[in-house]
Simulated scan of single mutants.
Amino acid sequence: MPIKIPDTLPARKFLEGEGLVVMRESEAARQDIRPLRIALLNLMPLKEKTEIHFSRLIGATPLQVELTLVTTGSYTPTNVSKQHMLDFYKPWEEIKDQKFDGLIVTGAPVETLPFEDVAYWEEISNIFDWTQSNVFNTLNICWGAQAALYHFYQVPKHQLDDKIFGLFPHHIVKKHSILLRGFADSFPVPVSRHTETTKEDIVKVPGLEILAESDEAGVCIVRDRGRRQVYMFNHLEYDATTLKDEYDRDVSQGLEINPPKYYFPQDDPSQVPLNTWRAHAHLLIANWINDVYQNTPFNMDDIGRE
């Protein structure tokens, strides 16, 4: 089944150009099925690119998904037009009385700040609490994963001496996990972080399962069945050139930055990087959505009552 997104969302033309089947709102209304309701809390500065990243992955699954774009009301983003936000995003306060099968919380460019110093921390905390009653399962990405673990369990993040930056090999820790179904024993994952959440802190919390990790980049994916949360510290959703764009930006600003490790062919920043991780990005999102589909209540009013 295709993904249902607003008819005029700029990401639509891009995704249709890739061959993704994108359903128009009028077509979705004619189908006598209940689509999965997935919300995307987009905290990334480049909103439109992030919309494409996740819509591409969600729309490749065999289920009809209705995607709702969500923003914080306590902070106004500055890297995207106000009209884009008004046309396509709903403040969380506006949708907080609704139920969702799934929620994706993205990363945010605030990872070096203490959590409580983030402008929208109080609202994010309320959103995490809200997931326990109004969302069946939540996928938290990068800073979103760190923030959720800190909110629920006070698991700290640690400042790194040097940024972890590159395409690092990872391996499966929890074999036969439904979220890693179809994964190779070793798989590459884009990583771009100034902080980390350590394995030593995670294993102190009963009920947290480490699913995948890297010898160099640390923990990658953690599952929390009790709170129906998944914590993904890295960026399988990235495009082939996203790390290159970050590197070029930092170089142009005169910042001291090493090229991302294991990323450029022959470690040569002048060469075009290849996307060697997209298949695993599709697997992770498809597995997550399938797990939600198999277990979420058909009657959405029952979400959060278990």
Rank of each mutant, 00 (worst) to 15 (best):
Phe14Arg: 10
Phe14Asn: 10
Leu15Met: 11
Leu15Phe: 12
Glu16Ile: 10
Gly17Tyr: 06
Val21Arg: 15
Glu27Val: 14
Ala28Leu: 15
Arg30Asp: 11
Gln31Gly: 04
Ile33Gly: 08
Leu36Ile: 12
Ala39Val: 10
Leu40Trp: 07
Leu41Gly: 04
Asn42Glu: 05
Leu43Gln: 04
Met44Glu: 10
Met44Ile: 04
Pro45Gly: 03
Glu48Cys: 02
Glu51His: 08
Glu51Ile: 11
His53Cys: 04
Arg56His: 12
Leu57Phe: 09
Gly59Asp: 14
Thr61Trp: 11
Gln64His: 13
Val65His: 07
Glu66Met: 07
Glu66Tyr: 06
Glu66Gly: 12
Thr68Met: 08
Thr68Leu: 09
Leu69Gly: 09
Val70His: 04
Thr71Arg: 12
Thr71Lys: 13
Gly73Ser: 08
Ser74Arg: 03
Tyr75Met: 00
Thr76Asn: 06
Pro77Thr: 02
Thr78Trp: 01
Ser81Met: 11
Lys82Pro: 01
Gln83Met: 13
Phe88Thr: 07
Phe88Asp: 06
Glu94Tyr: 13
Ile95Arg: 07
Lys96His: 15
Lys96Cys: 08
Gln98Pro: 06
Gln98Thr: 11
Asp101Cys: 14
Gly102Leu: 13
Gly107Ala: 07
Ala108Cys: 10
Ala108Arg: 03
Pro109Gln: 10
Pro109Ile: 08
Val110Thr: 03
Val110Met: 00
Phe115Leu: 01
Glu116Ser: 03
Glu116Cys: 01
Glu116His: 05
Glu116Ile: 00
Ala119Lys: 00
Trp121Asn: 00
Glu122Asp: 10
Ile124Ser: 02
Asn126Cys: 10
Ile127Lys: 02
Asp129Asn: 14
Asn134Arg: 14
Asn134Gly: 07
Val135Tyr: 01
Asn137Val: 03
Thr138Gly: 05
Leu139Lys: 03
Leu139Met: 06
Cys142Ile: 04
Cys142Trp: 00
Cys142Asp: 02
Ala147Asp: 00
Ala148Tyr: 01
